[in-house]
Design a protein around this nucleic acid. Structure first.
Length: 585
RNA sequence: GCGCUCGUAGCUCAACCGGAUAGAGCAACGGCCUUCUAAGCCGUAGGUUGCAGGUUCGAGUCCUGCCGGGCGUGCCA
């Protein structure tokens, strides 16, 4: 409908240009909006206001001329000039209601664009270090990323979902050392666990499995392990130096077996993360290994590329990337004096790799604490000759958990963080998925556990699901009364739906496709969440004032048709949010 | 200090590319079940959009300054 009106305006503009009322060199940007106030009709355009200045005309007068020049169209009942020069369009009942037929005909596909008709995009999200279970902060990134990816796909974009596995680097070595030390404890060796090691109980579980699968293969005398290791922090030393020495010792004593211990930790935790996400309805096409960037030579190749273009220089023995040439605050080290490449070097290689895979757009969903990295990564992309605009970085703020009005304290140091799995078990996947995306991602959010758990109207998830279940319930009731819903008869009797609430409801349904598009292209799932809440509200309002199972067959079928259309759109929307649409509650 | 970001009803948040009288929910108060699920509906009340300027037909939205919160600012990962 919006499209149609825009075309009518375009035609009117051409007419006015042809007869000399408007200059030929204007570049109109035709906007048609949903009206906020019913008194303003169904749709409105501000075209006369935006053209008033370049056309050097009074906006209301111009609006009138545009109206006069509008081609006649059966769907438009009347137009009005209002306010400073808006053109309001009043659409006929019949053409508003045609959307019901579209919904029922298209079913699950209603609102979706043509599959893979758009660009190819990659969405990378969560990508938490595999050093422990996911916590509630990762949960928001997971829900947000999964929904953004699903929305894009629904909008016709070809989407690849990817998890970047940080399976290299010091943190992973600390993990391996932690596993190994717990393993030694399983062999009844007494040792003091490093303060900077991973304290979680899951480390013991991994060590236990290691004993089960490999017996004492990795066992070494503790005396050899701790010999000449610098003191830990509680003993007056430096915890970083202490743990690094332990890692080095583990590598010495285990030789080639070190990698087995390392992989045992990595695979166990990664397996847990996959399972966790899978249960949360979050799935990936690709789990991309950071280590593979080194073995494939991408890291050295990326650095060579930058070198060849003259963006690298040596200073103090380190190799620097001149990112300041591309707007970064300071230059960055890519290779240390000891020959080790930095994490940033891997990032450069990773993004080079992404762009070489030919995506039209690369979307990174990062925790908000990473926002300082955007400039340097974009700088690297640009330096390698790619368009930095093709990288879209979306930041997700952390969620603060509340139990009622009480804040749930979390700290990684004390190990008292709430895991995503615990949250899902307590609150349920549906409420989790919904709550996480109901607020703008770059906004801090308060996640109230008590509210998410309540099964009442206070909880928007149940409110929406209940609307869906209500329609199902009516259809069951209908059947038990020995009646059936006749879709064709319903569609043929649309003119019987004459109340204002019915029209509101249908107009809300008609907004679904554009809402979906908007939510997808702007990476804003909350728009869809809010839309569904509004739709459910409109439905409940209508339902409360209108009986569906009535003797008047024509009216009954018309109302049932509307109900089923609402159910369809609710189901489509909930599916995209990863929330179930129950048939009864 | 510098950079990014946010500031909207008592609370949690919306507001489509700059549009008309800034909207929901919760909390508060008052109503509605012999009727398809009351997990619902209706109504009342609640605002100088942090402050001060600027841009224009029009600003919560764009620009400048200030105030306040968050994050970043490692040869860490």
């Amino acid at each position: 409908m919006k499209e149609q009106i825009a075309q009518l305006i375009d035609a009117a503009l051409s007419t006015l240009i042809a007869n000399g009322t408007l200059p030929a060199d204007i570049t109109p940007n035709i906007q048609v909006e949903n009206t906020r106030d019913k008194a303003h009709g169904d749709f409105a355009s501000n075209i006369a206001l935006t053209l008033a200045k370049p056309a050097r005309r009074n906006p209301r007068e111009l609006a009138q001329q545009l109206c006069d020049a509008l081609p006649t169209n059966g769907s438009i009942e009347k137009t009005e000039i209002a306010g400073p020069g808006f053109i309001n369009f009043f659409v006929s009942q019949a053409s508003i209601f045609t959307v019901l037929g579209d919904i029922l005909e298209q079913g699950d596909a209603f609102g979706r664009g043509q599959a893979n008709s758009g660009p190819r995009m990659q969405v990378e999200f969560v990508s938490a270090n595999p050093t422990g279970p996911l916590h509630v902060g990762h949960g928001r990134g997971a829900a947000y990323g999964a929904t953004v990816a699903d929305l894009l796909e629904a909008a016709g974009v070809e989407v690849e979902r990817e998890y970047y596995v940080n399976d290299a680097g010091r943190q992973m070595n600390i993990l391996a050392a932690s596993v190994w030390l717990r393993y030694l404890e399983q062999h009844e060796q007494e040792l003091t666990f490093p303060s900077n090691g991973y304290q979680g109980h899951y480390i013991r579980d991994i060590a236990h499995d290691l004993v089960k699968d490999h017996g004492d293969r990795f066992n070494r005398p503790v005396a050899d392990v701790v010999a000449d290791i610098p003191a830990d922090e509680p003993a007056g030393g430096d915890k970083e130096v202490h743990i690094d020495a332990l890692i080095e010792r583990a590598q010495q004593l285990l030789g080639d077996d070190y990698e087995m211990v390392f992989d045992a930790g990595l695979n166990s935790i990664l397996g847990d993360i996959r399972e966790d996400l899978g249960e949360f309805g979050v799935n990936y096409q690709e789990w991309f290994s950071e280590r593979s960037l080194t073995s494939s030579g991408d890291v050295s190749r990326a650095l060579e590329q930058l070198e060849a273009k003259g963006y690298l220089y040596e200073q103090d023995g380190n190799l620097w990337f001149r990112s300041t040439d591309f707007g970064d605050d300071k230059d960055r080290v890519v290779k240390r004096a000891n020959g080790q490449t930095t994490y940033f070097a891997s990032d450069i290689a990773y993004h080079m790799n992404k762009f070489e895979r030919g995506f039209d757009k690369v979307v990174n969903i990062w925790g908000a604490d990473h926002h300082g990295y955007i400039a340097r990564v974009k700088a690297a992309i640009q330096a390698m000759g790619y368009d930095p605009e093709k990288l879209e970085v979306r930041l997700v703020q952390f969620a603060i958990l509340y139990r009622g009005s009480e804040r749930v304290q979390m700290s990684t140091r004390s190990g008292s963080f709430v895991t995503l799995r615990e949250l899902r078990n307590e609150v349920g996947n549906d409420a989790c998925r919904f709550f996480y995306v109901t607020r703008k991602a770059d906004q801090h959010m308060d996640f109230d556990l008590e509210l998410a758990k309540t099964e009442s109207k206070d909880n928007p998830v149940y409110y929406i699901q209940y609307a869906h279940a209500r329609v199902c319930s009516v259809l069951r009731k209908l059947e038990s009364e020995g009646m059936a819903w006749d879709q064709a008869a319903g569609l043929a009797a649309m003119e019987r739906l004459e109340s204002e609430t019915e029209k509101d409801l249908v107009k809300q349904l008609a907004k679904y496709p554009e809402t979906l598009q908007h939510a997808a292209l702007n990476f804003e799932p909350h728009v869809l969440a809010n839309y569904l809440r509004d739709l459910a509200g409109d439905f409940h309002t209508w339902y409360n004032g209108h009986k569906l199972i009535i003797d008047d067959a024509e009216l009954r079928n018309a109302r049932l048709t509307l109900s089923v259309a609402v159910r369809q759109v609710l189901a489509n929307g909930l599916k995209l949010l990863g929330v179930s649409a129950p048939e009864q509650m």
